[in-house]
């Protein structure tokens, strides 16, 4: 990834801006959400792969700073929600797309299903993904 940052530095004009936008591991909350409120039904578990990806990315960005390729100007976290209409749809997606990064144990799934079953008719399930956005300026 350091090589990629070096390449980005090369193709950016003087004073160019690099935006680093990515999800971070963080045992994301699983929530039952209605039009009025939401209730946390459990949390996903970060996998070692996801944690290692974050560590490697953070290390590369730090190196881009110490190499004086970029200077960090601004950084924040924000939530990014994925919504599904039912636990089955959610599980199907998680199994297909997120199996490398998170796990969800059977007890948590049971809790999610039972909380969704007793919620209002408009209830949906969502995962609150932790996002990081950072603006770097080319030096």
């Amino acid at each position: 990834m350091v090589h990629a940052l070096n390449e980005i530095h090369r193709v950016l004009a003087p004073d160019g801006i690099m935006i680093d936008l990515r999800p971070l591991a963080g045992n994301w909350p699983m929530e039952v959400a209605t039009s009025r409120d939401f209730l946390e039904a459990g949390r996903v578990s970060d996998s070692p792969t996801g944690l290692e990806d974050d560590r490697a990315a953070n290390e590369s960005m730090t190196k881009a700073g110490t190499q004086k390729w970029f200077i960090r100007q601004r950084e924040e976290y924000f939530p990014f929600f994925y919504y599904w209409d039912s636990p089955n749809e959610m599980k199907e997606y998680v199994d297909e797309h997120w199996a490398d990064f998170i796990t969800i144990d059977e007890t948590t799934w049971r809790n999610v299903r039972s909380q969704w079953a007793v919620a209002n008719a408009d209830a949906r399930l969502r995962v609150r993904v932790k996002m990081l956005i950072t603006r770097w300026k080319k030096i």
Binding site: M1, L12, D53
Partner: peptide, 21 residues
């Protein structure tokens, strides 16, 4: 591939690393 970006130097004003780490 991001490790070999096929463009000349200083071509862009903004680069976005989009969920790509």
């Amino acid at each position: 591939d991001s490790v070999c970006i096929p463009f000349i130097k200083e071509k862009f004003d903004i680069a976005i690393l989009a969920w790509s780490f």
